[in-house]
Simulated scan of single mutants.
Amino acid sequence: MLLLNSESNPVNNNTNDNDKVVEITNLDFYFGSGALKKQILFDINLTLKKGEVVIMKGPSGSGKTTLLTLMGALRSSSHGSLKVFGKELVNGKDKLLIETRCNIGYIFQAHNLLKSLTARQNVQMSIELHNHISSKEAKLRSIEMLNAVGLGDHINYYPENLSGGQKQRVAIARALVSHPKMVLADEPTAALDSKSGRDVVDIMENLAKNQGCTILIVTHDDRILDVAERIIELEDGHLISNLSEL
Results as ranks from 00 to 15, higher is better:
residue 80 G to T: 05
residue 92 G to W: 03
residue 66 T to N: 07
residue 48 L to E: 01
residue 94 D to G: 13
residue 88 E to P: 12
residue 51 G to A: 01
residue 46 L to C: 05
residue 92 G to D: 06
residue 84 V to W: 08
residue 40 I to D: 00
residue 62 S to A: 01
residue 55 I to T: 08
residue 74 L to V: 14
residue 96 L to R: 04
residue 21 V to L: 00
residue 19 D to Q: 07
residue 63 G to C: 04
residue 50 K to Y: 00
residue 74 L to W: 11
residue 19 D to R: 03
residue 4 L to D: 15
residue 12 N to M: 10
residue 91 N to Y: 12
residue 17 D to H: 07
residue 25 T to R: 13
residue 76 S to F: 09
residue 71 M to E: 12
residue 44 I to W: 08
residue 4 L to S: 08
residue 4 L to V: 15
residue 55 I to Q: 15
residue 73 A to V: 01
residue 5 N to P: 09
residue 59 P to S: 02
residue 37 K to D: 12
residue 67 L to D: 08
residue 43 D to E: 13
residue 5 N to D: 12
residue 16 N to H: 10
residue 7 E to P: 15
residue 21 V to C: 02
residue 31 F to M: 08
residue 22 V to W: 15
residue 81 S to K: 10
residue 44 I to G: 06
residue 22 V to I: 14
residue 59 P to C: 04
residue 86 G to N: 04
residue 84 V to R: 06
residue 66 T to C: 05
residue 81 S to E: 09
residue 23 E to T: 02
residue 13 N to Q: 15
residue 70 L to K: 11
residue 31 F to I: 13
residue 44 I to Q: 08
residue 76 S to D: 07
residue 20 K to I: 01
residue 54 V to E: 04
residue 20 K to G: 00
residue 83 K to I: 12
residue 51 G to V: 08
residue 77 S to C: 05
residue 50 K to F: 01
residue 6 S to L: 03
residue 12 N to F: 12
residue 96 L to C: 02
residue 79 H to S: 15
residue 42 F to L: 15
residue 76 S to W: 11
residue 82 L to E: 05
residue 57 K to D: 12
residue 78 S to N: 10
residue 98 I to Y: 13
residue 39 Q to I: 00
residue 75 R to S: 09
residue 48 L to S: 00
residue 46 L to Q: 02
residue 22 V to A: 11
residue 25 T to Y: 10
residue 81 S to R: 11
residue 43 D to H: 13
residue 7 E to I: 15
residue 45 N to I: 03
residue 76 S to G: 13
residue 88 E to M: 08
residue 56 M to W: 14
residue 74 L to A: 13
residue 5 N to T: 12
residue 13 N to H: 10
residue 11 V to L: 09
residue 85 F to W: 01
residue 73 A to H: 04
residue 95 K to T: 07
residue 67 L to K: 04
residue 70 L to E: 11
residue 34 G to V: 02
residue 63 G to Y: 04
residue 94 D to C: 09
residue 68 L to A: 03
residue 53 V to G: 00
residue 45 N to F: 05
residue 72 G to E: 01
residue 69 T to L: 14
residue 51 G to Y: 02
residue 9 N to M: 11
residue 81 S to T: 13
residue 20 K to S: 00
residue 15 T to A: 09
residue 24 I to P: 03
residue 13 N to C: 09
residue 69 T to D: 13
residue 49 K to C: 05
residue 82 L to D: 06
residue 75 R to F: 03
residue 98 I to D: 14
